Structures are given as C-alpha cells and as structure tokens.
Computed example of a mutant assay.
Amino acid sequence: MTAAVTTPRGARPKNPFAPRNIMLYGALIIFSIYYLLPLYVMLVTSLKDMAEIRVGNIFSPPVEITFQPWVKAWSEACTGINCDGLSRGFGNSVRILIPSLILSVSVAALTGYVLACWRFRGSEVFFGILLLGAFIPYQVLLYPLVIILREMGLFGSLWGLVLVHTVFAMPINVLLFRNYFVALPEELFKAARVDGAGFWGIFFRIVIPMSLPIFVVSGIIQVTGIWNDFLFGVVYTRPENYPMTVQLNNIVNSVQGVKEYNVNMAATMLTGLVPLAVYFFSGRLFVRGIAAGAVKG
C-alpha cells in the first residue's frame, strides 16, 4: 500500500529578491534618501562651527560637535532690534496654535456632524458653498480680512490671527468630518434616538468615541498648517506677536554681519521640531483616519 503524498500547506513563500521587490524597495530607498538628505545636511551643519563649515564639505559629519549654534538660534540670534532668538516666537506660536486648533477642530467636527446626521433644507447647498471656500486663493482675501479685523479691533493681535486660522480651516476640515461621519452605521443613531439620546447626547457619547482617527487627521493638518504658516503671521500680527516662522525668516534673511549658516540651520530645525514630533507620535492614527473614509465622498 503506497503512502499518501503530503503537500505543504499555506501560502507559497515569497522570494524577497524577485525583480518586482527589488524595483519596489530600490525606488523607496532612493526616494527616502532624496527626502532625508536635506535633513541630514541641516543637522550636521547645525552641529559644526563656522571654521569647519568654510572648508566646504557639507556632507561630512562634524569633526567636533558643538551645540552653540542651537543655543544662539534659540536665545541670542537677532531679529531686527530684538536679540532673543526664536524663544519669543515659539511662545507666540504656541499661544496661536492651541486656541486655533481647539476652535477649528471643534467647530468643524460639529458642522460635519450636523451635515452628515441632522440634515436640514439647504444643507447640501451650504456644504457646497463651504467647499467653494477651499478653492479661493488666500491672497484674494488678505486685504478684506485686514479691514474686517481692524473694524473688530483684533488686527495685530494673537486672537485676530487665531480667528483667521479658524475660518480658513473650515472647508477642508468640515469635508473630512462630514465624510467620516456619513460612513458611520446609521443604525447606531436610530438606536440612540430610541433610547432617548438627543443631538448632544449622540455627538458626545457615540460620534466622538468612534472618531478618534479623524480627529487625529484633522489635528495633524491643523498643527502643520498653523505652525508652518508665514503669510498670515506676517500680515495680521505686529512684530511683538510674530510667530516662530516669521522670526525664522528674520534670522535667516538678516543682511547684517557674518552669515552664520550653522545658526540658520539650527533655527530651521528648531522651528520644524513640533510638526515632526506630531507626525512621529500620531502617524499610525493619521493613516487609519484617511483609510477609514476621510477622503471618501
């Protein structure tokens, strides 16, 4: 009696050195190097002194690491008549970011919830008009907003800039929240209404607990946009209220004295640390939010 022939079970092992994999990972490595190379140059330049920088090899690591450029960029670099570095701009950026983030995300989430779950007559028209704002160039509205903020007594203040960021965040953030909430099971809302939950009960007890990924998506978009903003900061605030990006521009583009490339690179790295940290700690939730329907119509 012949023994039964057994065959291996499961998926066939993939060849890691297949031509397709080599091309795929090779392209990813090349693109990664392309995007990381400027960051590497900035980092190593910020850790060198000017004598080593003048040698001219920008890709070589520092022979002797120094953190003096970072100290000077933070607390000693001059921006006009002030020589307190980026520290004052950092404080202003934080005071702009926190209320702008809370207001824009809260209002957009509530508006998206209304448009998705409590539709009213003309809601689609309202939604279309709101989306139209996403396609209006910022430059067209700069001067009218100056007039509006001046009449409100907010021009030049941090709260005026907070209001501008909140308003300009509405189109894209409402789109994100509305499309995410539309994808939630409608049976949950019907069951909640049967149990006596109203507008706010459904929002706080059902919608928000199920929507952490899209809140992270919206938060990352807002943090990046607000923290990296230069145009609104330089137009709608006064020098004492300039955000960190405007301070960075004043340091890098200073025409007085010796051009200190190590200080400029350190200042640039310091300015970008907050968005980098947000992406590093929230990257997975960002991908989940996008994949769960953030960009679905």
Rank of each mutant, 00 (worst) to 15 (best):
P13F: 08
K14W: 00
P16R: 13
A18V: 00
P19E: 06
L24W: 07
L36Y: 11
L36I: 11
Y40T: 08
M42D: 10
L43M: 13
V44L: 02
T45A: 05
M50G: 02
E52V: 02
E52M: 07
G56N: 06
I58A: 15
P61G: 15
P69M: 06
T79Y: 14
I81V: 12
G85C: 04
G85N: 06
R88N: 12
F90L: 15
G91P: 05
S93R: 12
I98W: 02
L101N: 03
I102Y: 10
S104L: 06
S106W: 03
L115H: 02
R119A: 12
S123T: 00
F126C: 10
F126T: 08
G128Q: 14
L132N: 07
G133C: 05
V140T: 12
L149P: 03
L149M: 09
G153M: 08
V162E: 03
H165G: 01
T166N: 04
F168G: 04
A169R: 08
P171W: 01
A183R: 12
P185G: 05
L188K: 08
F189E: 07
A191P: 00
A191N: 10
G196C: 07
A197K: 07
W200T: 05
F203H: 06
F203P: 03
P209E: 10
P209I: 05
M210I: 04
I214L: 02
I214M: 01
I220D: 01
V223G: 03
W227P: 02
V234I: 14
R238D: 13
Y242I: 00
T245G: 10
V246R: 01
N250K: 15
N250W: 08
I251V: 12
S254N: 15
N262D: 09
N262W: 04
N264G: 00
N264R: 10
A266H: 01
L276M: 15
L276Q: 10
F281Q: 05
G289R: 04
A291H: 07
G297R: 11
